[in-house]
Amino acid sequence: MAKKYVISFESTHGAIAARRVLDKSGMIRTIPVPRAISAACGIAISFDGENLDYVMEKMKTLDIEGEYHLHAMDEE
């Protein structure tokens, strides 16, 4: 029952920039925005709860405050 998180973005460029700074490739996956979430851009990133702090720390280094949203997802 690992908690999963998804970040959606207002712009495609924000999503691509975020993917670039999140270099722990094996832990972070680029996914299409889940249908349950609506967002301006179709690219989202997904990761396990254990990487939440790492991801949020990195997100702060990007100048896109307020242009992305964190969603907690329940997975099997």
């Binding site: 996956r29 680029t30 996914i31 299409p32 179709g42």
Partner: peptide, 8 residues
């Protein structure tokens, strides 16, 4: 990124 998402 589109290819990654497609295969995922």
């Amino acid at each position: 990124n589109l290819l990654k998402m497609y295969i995922y």
